[in-house]
Amino acid sequence: MISQIVIVLFDGFAFGMLLFLLSVGLSVTLGMMNFINLAHGAFGMFGGYVAVTVMRQLGLPFLVALPLAFIAMAVLSVMIERTLFRRLYKAGELNQVLFTIGVVFVAAAAATFIFGTVQQVIILPDWLRGSVEIGGIRFGIYRAFIILVALIITALLVFGLERTRLGAQIRAAVDNQRMAQGLGLDVERVFAITFALGCGLAGLGGALAVEIVGLSPSFGFQMLVYVLIVVSVGGLGSISGSFAGAALLGIGDVAGKYFWPEIGSFLIYLLLVAILLVRPLGLFGKR
């Protein structure tokens, strides 16, 4: 029994960490600029495609493909942010929703055109395949790898946010945008950097997700729902919130399906509705 609980916690946590990488960027940008970017999942999708392509066409190893996915998405997002999205910060929520849905449509069509509708495959190096047995429990090596990557990134993010100058600026901009601007902070620039970081992380998450959930042009839509759940449950603009929300969602999902398979698919939605009714701002939301 205990070993089952351990394995469910482990698997759920790994899935949750994947969701965390995919959604943390959206949470922070939403909290900072109130900009609803439904195209966030599309960055994850293209991150996955970048990783698959460089591994296939250029034969680069997996560990090189991951940072490349991050960089490519960060650069792409800055380009899109500077040319398109920045016009919309003052626009209403509904217009942002409409515009970014439009972007998702275009992204899906572009992915279909370039890569075809076929499911993409990522070939992992041997040392990431299979599982190890510890105390009679089998742990998937790749899942452990995902957890490791996510924890390192969380540590970097928390450190960056608490200790660096940019981190302080971001916190200021999230807490009170007008005040920060009044104090001479270039909020737009800070935002552009945050946006790039967030989308880069989504790209990284997308690349990591290929092995677990696959990759096709509808990835952007599929993941959007999960990402939105994580963001709303965790609370806007909070890294720890996204972390907790994602872990909760991942573990809840896996545990629900394991212990009560008949109602497994309901559980996360019940959880979502219940949490939001009790805490409309999410678990860690400030406003």
Binding site: L84, R87, L88, A91, N95, L98, F99, I101, G102, V103, V104, F105, V106, A107, A108, A109, A110, F113
Partner: peptide, 13 residues
């Protein structure tokens, strides 16, 4: 949906 996407973006802008 490429066309629809463009339509949506143009309308918003």
């Amino acid at each position: 949906y490429f066309g629809i996407g463009i339509l949506l973006m143009v309308v918003v802008l």
